[in-house]
Simulated scan of single mutants.
Amino acid sequence: MKVQSSLFALAGLTALLSACGTTTAPTETDPYAGHVYAQSNAASNTVVSYGRSADGKLTKLGEVSTGGNGSDGKLVVVKPGKAAVDPLFSNDSVLLTPDHQRLFVTNAGSGSVSAFSLDASGAPKLVGTYPSGAANPTSLSVSGELLYVSHGDASAQNVQITGFRIGADGSLTAIPAASYAPSKASVITQVKFSPDAKFLQTSELMNDIIALYPVAANGTLGAPVQNASVAAGKGVFGTAWLDSTHLLVSEAMSGSVSSYAVDASGKLTPISAAVPNNQKATCWLKITPDKKFVYASNTSSGNVSVYRIGADASLTLVNAVAASLPAGGAVDFMDNPSSGTVDLVISADGKYLYQQYSGLGVVAAYSIGSDGNLTPIAGGDATGLPIGTEGLAGY
């Protein structure tokens, strides 16, 4: 009887883990340990899907239209229309839900968001493409049935952040009156729910403001708590929640990363202030599942830095250049040649990191060492994406 009870308990635990999307073992319907999805950002936008093998290698599986338009590799803000390796100036333009059942993609060239369902093999199927509510949608965040979108520019009605409800079929419906703007004009580079869904955080690049909006029960937002970036850290860009009370922030203009404590009101207190890596345009952040390391993509330098995260959420630089690829013919928004490190993904098991090089049209595969350093996986890269691709999600 005890053995039978143990078996039932084990079966229940296995089912629970599977439902939470934490297992990555291949199945009969899906021979891959995980999947990675890239946005081409082409004029006729597409999502390119890859299978992740147990050894970390990527295999292209397919490409599907979003039903919308990308920016065709051109900047949508700062210097609109200029070809550059960082065309969207944002994090999370492609977003995968935690259960790996839904995928959402911004179409910066047509002011829309595309919703996809993912079948048992990880293949995306377009549910629909929906107006995003403002110009140049570039960043997404999901919490439960809520989806929020931030835009590179405010609309004529001064709208720059919009909220949607996700239907049972994955469709999107705009939440009435869920339209917001920063305190003054700025480029919003990221929108991100806190893990407990208490706040929606935005990064205001030009204002050097980290804003936390309280989320109401009906999905609308309250007045934001506006936190100025620490004096040494300029150009707040990417963020990553360590947990609901700790936030990591990249500073593009300083080439640094900071960590903050978040109190119940949404006020931030610095823990590690602007820890430098001496690289250019530190923008994208990703934390390992065990929360020991955070990786930062330095777009203009075309490389990746790694920091160790302390038990108190303090940061220590491990390696300023843990990975890099040489520049091709593409340039950043300041006309500096760059391979264009933009979005990155860490596998659910914490073994592999995938770095999108927008200036090369490559998603490079690396194994993660116990010390946080990265080793290229021979034959593991995905190639053939257009120059100016931006947006990556996966597990």
Rank of each mutant, 00 (worst) to 15 (best):
N336G: 15
Y352T: 09
G388W: 06
D332H: 07
S324M: 05
C20M: 14
V187E: 07
V159D: 01
N373D: 07
L146P: 06
A185P: 09
D290F: 04
D153S: 14
V36T: 02
G68P: 03
S93R: 09
G170P: 05
V262G: 01
L96N: 05
V363C: 08
K57D: 01
P176I: 10
L268S: 07
I166F: 03
Q4P: 00
G310C: 11
G219F: 07
S114F: 10
K2E: 11
S367H: 02
P224I: 04
A323R: 01
L212W: 06
K292L: 10
S5I: 11
R102H: 12
K82W: 04
Q356L: 15
K192H: 12
D153L: 11
D92K: 15
P124K: 00
A322D: 09
A174L: 09
G170F: 02
G235F: 09
D119M: 12
N319A: 15
L247F: 03
V294T: 15
D263T: 03
D371P: 06
V64M: 10
G128H: 05
E63L: 08
S143W: 14
S93H: 08
D349C: 09
M206P: 00
S256P: 03
P87R: 13
V3K: 13
Q201H: 11
S370M: 13
G328I: 11
G235M: 08
N207K: 12
A228G: 10
A382G: 14
G388M: 11
V187F: 08
Y307D: 00
V127R: 01
V215R: 01
N227I: 01
V85M: 10
D92R: 14
A134N: 09
D263A: 02
A217W: 08
S171V: 01
P31N: 01
A273Q: 12
G56H: 02
A115C: 15
C283M: 03
D335G: 13
G329P: 04
T106E: 05
L58N: 02
V304E: 00
D86K: 05
S254F: 05
P337M: 14
T239H: 08
A42E: 04
T189M: 06
Q355A: 15
K125Y: 00
S53G: 12
G361M: 07
S301F: 06
S114A: 15
T14Y: 12
K286L: 06
T269W: 00
Y32A: 00
S250Q: 02
H35G: 06
G12Q: 09
Y366P: 01
T14D: 07
L374H: 04
S49H: 10
I209D: 15
V113P: 02
M206K: 06
S139K: 08
R308M: 04
V321Q: 13
V294F: 11
G144L: 12
V3M: 10
L126F: 00
D208K: 08
N373C: 04
S305G: 01
T106H: 03
K60F: 08
G359H: 03
D243V: 09
L147R: 07
N218I: 07
L221R: 02
S139E: 09
L58W: 05
P337V: 15
S259R: 00
T22P: 00
A240Y: 13
N207A: 15
I188L: 14
V77T: 15
S301C: 10
Y130G: 01
F116I: 12
